[in-house]
Design a protein around this nucleic acid. Structure first.
Length: 454
RNA sequence: GGCUGGGUGGCAGAAUGGUUAUGCAGCGGAUUGCAAAUCCGUAGAAGCCGGUUCGAUUCCGACCCCAGCCUCCA
C-alpha cells in the first residue's frame, strides 16, 4: 500500500490507481533553452524513485516525461548564440540525457517532444474554441478562465483575490486578466505551424495537456512536477484538459517536489544562483548528487551547497565501505526500506534503514550473515537507485592517480611493513596521500586503499 | 492584500501523546608499529506563550520568525 501527499486536498492519501494493475504517471520535463541545472534534476530523481516503487507494486507502469522544445526562451537563446533553434534544442536535450544517466535516472516510457505533436495540440485548442472555453482575439487564442468555475482549486486561489498582472503586463485583448494563451501568432523568423488561426505556435501550458492525453488518456493517476508549477502551469493544464474532455478530471493524484535553495536563498534563474549539473558532475559523481537529493524529503525545500554534497559523499562512502569485500549475491528487498518509500516517498528514512543495515553488516562476525546483509543492503539500494557500483572500483574511481603507480606504491609499502621498516612504510603512505590516496591496513597484513574522502 | 509550507541537538534530517532516530562532526574507549577504517560507549534538541492531558517535541489556539507563490522558473 502506497500513501502519497496529494496537492489536490493537501493531505496524504492511500494511492489507488484507476486500474488495479496499471498506473499512469506524467511528469513535466525540461524546457530546453539552457544547460540543465540541479533544479531540473530534483523532480527527475524524485519521480524516478516513485517510478521504481510503482514498478515494484504494479505490473504495468507507463511514465511520460515530456521535453518542451518550443518556447520563446529557446528562440531568444538561439538568437543570442546565432544558431539554429534545432542546434540549441539538440544540444540541451543531449546534455539533459547525459546528466540524467549520470544521476541514475531511468528513461521514462515515453519522452515526447512538443514539436512532434503539433496536430494534437491544434486539435485540442480547436475543441476548446468550439466549446467556447476559448476565444480568438488579436490572432491569439485564449482560454477563458471564467468558463471554468473550478479554476484555482489546485492552488487554493480565488482569482478575484489575486493581484492580476503583479509581475507582467496584462495584454489588452484579454477578457479576464487571468486568461492565458493557448496559441499565438509567429512572425516570419519565429518558428510556426499552420493552424486555423494562422501560422503560429502554442502557448506554454497546452503541450502537457495534449501530450498527456496522447499517451495516457483523459485521466492520469499521477501528475508530478516542481512546486513552482502548481500555479499557473498545472492550474491551467487542469482547466484546459477538463474543459476539452467533457468535465472528466485530468488527474487524481498531484505531486509536487519542493524547490532548491542555496544558503537559504531561493535558487532560480532570476537570482542567478543556479548550479548546473555539468558543473556539479565535474566535482562529484552522479550517485553523490542522487544521494543528496534523497537525503531530504521531496516536499521540503532543499538547501544545495558545498556542505550538502560533502555530507552526501561521506554518507555514501560509509554505505559503500560496508559493501567492500562482499560481492553481490541474490537477496530479497528490505521491507523497512520499502515501507519508508511507500509512506509518501520518505527517502531520508529509507536511507536511515540502509545505514542500519550497514551497521549490522559491519558489526557482524558471521560470514554467512554478512553475505546476506550485504545482499539486502544492495537490494535496498536498487529501490533507491544507489549502491549498484562495484564497491572496490568506486573506492578508487574518482582518483586522477595512475593506477599502476598506486598499486606499486601500495605493494612496496606492504613489503616495508612486513619487514617492519615502519619509517619507509610511513614515507610511502605520505607519497600516496600526495596522490590523493588513503591506505588502510587490514588485520591480515594486507592493505586496502581508496581515494581521500573529503 | 490573498494563498501555501516550515521553525528539532554543532550540521544535515526523520519518526513519534510516555520508550535509542539515523548519518556527519565532538568526546572517551577498543583495535593499530603509528594511522585510517571499524566497533563499543557518551554528551547534546525541539522559536515563544497559553490550553487539552496523568503526561506534549508530537494535539489545539495566539504570537514571533523564516521560505515560497499570486501568470519567467523544475
Amino acid at each position: 500500500m502506497i500513501k502519497l501527499f496529494n496537492t489536490l486536498g493537501h493531505r496524504k492519501q492511500i494511492f489507488r490507481p484507476q486500474h488495479p494493475e496499471r498506473v499512469t504517471m506524467y511528469v513535466c520535463g525540461p524546457t530546453v533553452y539552457s544547460w540543465p541545472h540541479v533544479g531540473n534534476a530534483r523532480p527527475a530523481v524524485v519521480f524516478d524513485v516513485l517510478y521504481r516503487l510503482l514498478c515494484h507494486f504494479y505490473p504495468q507502469v507507463t511514465y511520460v516525461r515530456n521535453i518542451t522544445d518550443v518556447d520563446d526562451k529557446i528562440n531568444a537563446a538561439a538568437e543570442r548564440a546565432q544558431l539554429d533553434i534545432d542546434v540549441i534544442t539538440r544540444r540541451y536535450i543531449d546534455s539533459y540525457h547525459a546528466d540524467m544517466r549520470a544521476l541514475g535516472v531511468a528513461p521514462p516510457t515515453h519522452e515526447p517532444r512538443v514539436t512532434a505533436h503539433m496536430e494534437e495540440i491544434i486539435a485540442m485548442v480547436q475543441r476548446l474554441v468550439a466549446s467556447e472555453h476559448a476565444y480568438v482575439a488579436a490572432a491569439h487564442v485564449l482560454f477563458s478562465v471564467d468558463s471554468f468555475p473550478e479554476y484555482g482549486r489546485l492552488s487554493s486561489r480565488r482569482h478575484a483575490d489575486q493581484r492580476a498582472g503583479a509581475r507582467v503586463e496584462v495584454a489588452p485583448f484579454k477578457r479576464n486578466p487571468a486568461d492565458f494563451v493557448l496559441w499565438k501568432p509567429s512572425t516570419a523568423e519565429q518558428p510556426g505551424w499552420d493552424s486555423p488561426w494562422g501560422r503560429g505556435r502554442p502557448g506554454w501550458h497546452i503541450e502537457c495537456s495534449a501530450l498527456a492525453m496522447l499517451h495516457l488518456g483523459e485521466t492520469l493517476d499521477i501528475h508530478g512536477g516542481g512546486q513552482d508549477l502548481v500555479f499557473p502551469h498545472h492550474e491551467n493544464e487542469i482547466a484546459q484538459s477538463v474543459c476539452a474532455h467533457g468535465g472528466r478530471p485530468l488527474c487524481n493524484y498531484w505531486l509536487h517536489n519542493g524547490l532548491l535553495r542555496q544558503h537559504n536563498e531561493k535558487m532560480s534563474k532570476s537570482t542567478g544562483n543556479m548550479r548546473l549539473l555539468r558543473d556539479e558532475l565535474q566535482c562529484h559523481d552522479g550517485e553523490t548528487l542522487r544521494y543528496a537529493f534523497m537525503a531530504t524529503h521531496y516536499r521540503s525545500p532543499l538547501d544545495w551547497n558545498d556542505d550538502t554534497l560533502l555530507t552526501a559523499r561521506r554518507n555514501l562512502d560509509r554505505l559503500y565501505g560496508a559493501l567492500r569485500g562482499h560481492p553481490p549475491v541474490a537477496a530479497e528487498q528490505p521491507v523497512a526500506v520499502l515501507e519508508a518509500l511507500a509512506d509518501d516517498l520518505n527517502t531520508p528514512l529509507a536511507l536511515t534503514r540502509l545505514h542500519e543495515l550497514a551497521r549490522r553488516l559491519k558489526r557482524s562476525t558471521d560470514a554467512a550473515k554478512q553475505r546476506h546483509l550485504a545482499g539486502t543492503l544492495r537490494q535496498g539500494g536498487v529501490l533507491l537507485g544507489l549502491l549498484q557500483q562495484d564497491a572496490e572500483q568506486r573506492a578508487a574511481m574518482p582518483s586522477t592517480a595512475d593506477p599502476e603507480q598506486v598499486q606499486q606504491l601500495v605493494a612496496d609499502r606492504d613489503a616495508a611493513r612486513r619487514a617492519r621498516d615502519f619509517a619507509a612504510a610511513d614515507q610511502l603512505r605520505d607519497c600516496l596521500a600526495d596522490l590523493g590516496i588513503a591506505v588502510q591496513d587490514l588485520p591480515d597484513g594486507s592493505s586496502q586503499w581508496s581515494r581521500h574522502s573529503g
